[in-house]
């Protein structure tokens, strides 16, 4: 069944989008990530203009994050204060990102920039995760006990000024790296249409030493608001949010996420991370190929005077 997307101005198949949403939702539920980093490239592969894929991706991320946050709130694994500071940074980063986005679009370099960012980020994160999880898998197979990070361990980040106490996370840390992390994620959210969970989660765990149990809930909490802000600004400055497209993806996504979460419980952590790493790398490679392959049309048209 075909449906016409009002903003993207193309006809697409409803079932393809629902299935895409469900598949990504399943994976995001399984791995505890928002899935924006999969949705946006998939939409681009499906010929949705990148600018619309990004803005709509950000909108879609809200739904999956709300769904996830609700279950974390019930379990009490959410640090509102930490989330709030991350969010303040996120708003700053996202605002900057929107301007860069509109500027690149005027230059005609937006598509390239989005692809490049995806290749670099997904390639790095996927590569690191793969190495880490393969090592962990090997260690468990050889019977050695996994090396646990001691919570008392400190790094340079903990020597920065302007310290603040985050009770729920049992953390006493400078607000500078927290704001900075939030800003970085906000920037990526507006340019890539991702929630940024796949960067936020490892950063909170490894850089800020936030206890793992509150990380996902807190990250999802701040992602809701950063994505909401991003969606709003994209809607007002670029008019690139397609609600019909977003709704189809969300509908499939929230259903898939709940089943994915269930399936995820049956797999071990390292296996899960190795699988996610392979997936992330595959998307990065597919996008990288697109950059190097001779395009079928060297020339492209776009409306002039686009802001």
């Amino acid at each position: 069944m075909g449906i016409y997307l009002p903003i993207a101005e193309i006809s697409v198949n409803v079932f393809v989008l629902l299935a895409m949403g469900a598949a990504v939702g399943f994976l995001s539920g399984m791995f505890g990530v928002g899935g924006g980093f999969l949705i946006t490239p998939l939409l681009i592969f499906y010929n949705i203009p990148p600018a619309i894929a990004v803005a709509t991706g950000a909108n879609q991320v809200i739904a999956s994050s709300v769904s996830g946050v609700l279950s974390h709130m019930k379990r009490g694994t959410l640090d509102f204060k930490l989330g709030g500071v991350l969010l303040a940074g996120g708003i700053i980063g996202s605002t900057a990102g929107i301007y860069v986005f509109a500027f690149l679009r005027r230059l005609g370099q937006l598509d390239l920039f989005i692809s490049l960012l995806y290749v670099v980020l997904l390639g790095t994160v996927g590569g690191l995760m793969l190495v880490e999880s393969v090592n962990a898998l090997r260690a468990t197979r050889s019977g050695a006990a996994p090396v646990l990070k001691k919570s008392g361990q400190h790094n340079w980040i903990h020597r920065l000024p302007l310290k603040m106490r985050f009770r729920a996370s049992k953390l006493f840390v400078s607000v500078i790296p927290v704001l900075g992390l939030g800003a970085g994620i906000g920037f990526l959210s507006s340019i890539m249409g991702v929630g940024g969970g796949f960067i936020m989660v490892p950063a909170l765990i490894y850089l800020l030493k936030v206890p793992t149990n509150v990380v996902i809930g807190t990250s999802l909490f701040q992602i809701i608001f950063t994505s909401a802000y991003t969606t709003l600004v994209h809607a007002t400055t670029n008019q690139t949010v397609d609600v019909v497209l977003a709704f189809l993806l969300m509908a499939g996504g929230v259903a898939g996420a709940q089943y994915g979460a269930k399936a995820g419980q049956r797999l071990r952590g390292e296996q899960l991370r190795a699988l996610l790493a392979v997936l992330v790398l595959a998307v990065a490679i597919r996008l990288a190929i697109g950059l190097f392959v001779t395009p079928p049309n060297l020339y492209s048209l776009s409306a002039a005077g686009l802001n």
Partner: peptide, 9 residues
Amino acid sequence: AMLTGWLGR
């Protein structure tokens, strides 16, 4: 999006 997320859950 928020409503869909909530209903979906």
